[in-house]
Design a protein around this nucleic acid. Structure first.
Lengths: 335, 335
DNA sequence: TTGAAAGCGTTACCAC
DNA sequence: GTGGTAACGCTTTCAA
């Protein structure tokens, strides 16, 4: 089409002609095949350098079957947790020499057409961090042997996933609050189908029960700052107030804290607040939020490892990894 | 390699054999070429459906020269502006039927090796939102005709970009503060090489000058919440305090506001605060921050348009678009 | 140690 | 309308 009077990009064939060798020799020299003379290798490398040769990864995919591309499905940006996860994933991908294709970002469901682009681009696997794949989308991936790993989500029926130990984390927070002498508890959860939220809440409630208490109120925080803020406001309007609030994610806890502050409630004196995730924002002096930090770097690393293992061997069974989070006690629960 | 006893993926050739036609016919039917009989088209489409045919976009790239892939370079996740930009880009890409390859995310410089992966994957263009490309990286792209568009950054010497009218925005904020009777100004800027920040500040200072005033103090907010917080703290410690603060980005303004709140300063009574960007967080009741909203959706759309135009015609001259932001007056500057 | 040639899946070009 | 065929850039046998 647009051939214009400009130099074409260097290819393996170009180089082979320049060097007076076969294309296969060039490939081998470039890829560091051992059984090739130092002389030719040096000559070819130099030529490649001079002509600004850049391998065509797509063509390589075609003949080798592996694309070096991973799909990434990300949750809503309004939750900083996903922004942090994105960065970890980018870092890890760079380290492994693979590329990330953004498949979806947001809280909407993943459309089937979106899932199909996973296939079109021959991704070696996909990391899913939020929305659940439609069952049709999951089928498509399974049929085409595209391994999927859920991060911070458990797969409903089958599949691989890596999560924080949400149940244990919830329990640990309950213990801390009970030990602090709190007696009246509110929970800000989420009605979404998020397995993560449910487990955190279960762990929390179970531990309270061991202490002989049950939460006195429950709100739906919609996994957002605004939802948390609304819950905090509702707590203020209630005649009888709790002395401790567990928001199942930091972003909601931040909303709760701001509502309480605007309402003139003193934290932690009148009310303690705890969250879950360990996002950077929770450490801000203004929040100083006690939370469970998810081991994000490790979670992401494990996800890539599972993916790498499965793109080499499709017969591996489903696997799930649960990593213990770290309690970070801060001012929002008192000293 | 791993051929296993499983059905191979359907390809154009597979389908052509099944339908008893030529591969080219299949391609045409699939791609909606007009000059093809309804009968054959229907037959082929049905076959494709039955066999779960998924086109191989990589192979298409090889023969058509267009990959349908755009590179994306994103700024640090700690600034919600970039998270919002990511979402806009994903939305726009979906609408246009193209895919996004994440090239980089963070505030570090873009390594040359990272830039090279743009070439390896034959991206049709790249959107750069934060870090500046090294000159070598820019050269590589230019030499290989990969069009680059800066968003929210101006290209230093040449190249395309789309920005908000930062100068006008800065001026508008100054006007608002002057009209509100403010007289002593502090600016929280950033020492980074960010053209964006400099222009905002220039516009602000120029407008102040028209009113016969100059800022009484200046801080480096490092484009982060923490930097803004530190600046706010420094303002508190100063003997003579300003009655208005301009932080050149919302994220820094949020830091300033929190520092002031912890310091017991009443906003806007004792001090007004303004930011720039229009991120969602600025609208939170706890901040209620007056700011200039960047027309992000439109900026992203324009960027894609410029990219699309240039991947079809490499001879287009550099182009720059500046879009006017919208002043959103809120409580942080008083009624 | 190197070469020749056959793919990989798709599209484009030229016939018919 | 449709078929045949040659690319596209790379890898991977199999030979030499």
């Amino acid at each position: 089409m647009e051939n214009e009077a400009s130099p074409r990009r260097a290819t393996v064939v170009t180089l082979s002609e320049l060097a007076g060798v076969a294309p296969s020799t060039v490939t081998r020299a470039l890829r560091g095949d051992t059984r090739i003379s130092e002389a030719t290798r040096a000559r070819i490398l130099k030529l490649a350098e001079q002509h600004g040769y850049a391998p065509n990864a797509l063509a390589r995919t075609l003949s080798s079957g592996r694309s070096g591309l991973y799909g990434l499905v990300l949750g809503p940006a309004s939750n900083p947790f996903y922004a942090e996860l994105l960065h970890e994933a980018v870092r890890e991908a760079k380290e492994r020499g693979v590329r990330l294709l953004i498949i979806h970002a947001g809280d909407g469901p993943i459309e089937d057409t979106t899932a199909e682009s996973l296939l079109h681009y021959q991704v070696d696997g996909c990391i899913i961090t939020s929305a659940v794949l439609s069952s049709r989308a999951a089928e498509i991936c399974a049929a085409n042997r595209v391994p999927l790993i859920m991060v911070n989500r458990v797969a409903r029926h089958h599949g691989c996933f890596v999560t924080c130990d949400n149940h244990a984390g919830g329990a640990e927070l309950a213990q801390l609050l009970l030990a602090g002498g709190r007696t009246k508890f509110a929970v800000v959860g989420t009605s979404s189908t998020s397995s993560t939220a449910v487990e955190r809440e279960d762990g929390f409630v179970a531990e309270l029960a061991r202490g002989g208490v049950a939460p006195m109120m429950h709100f739906d925080g919609h996994s957002s700052y605004e939802g948390g803020f609304a819950a905090g406001t509702a707590i203020l309007e209630n005649a009888v107030r709790p002395d401790a609030v567990f928001a199942v994610s930091d972003i909601m806890a931040m909303g709760v804290l701001d509502a309480l502050r605007l309402g003139g409630v003193s934290v932690p004196d009148q009310m303690a607040v705890v969250g879950f995730d360990g996002v950077a924002e929770a450490a801000r002096p203004i929040y100083d939020l006690t939370t469970i930090e998810q081991p994000l770097p490790l979670m992401v690393r494990r996800a890539f490892e599972m993916l790498a293992a499965r793109s080499g061997n499709h017969r591996l069974p489903d696997e799930s990894i649960s990593l213990r989070g770290r309690l970070i006690p801060r001012g929002s629960t008192g000293r």
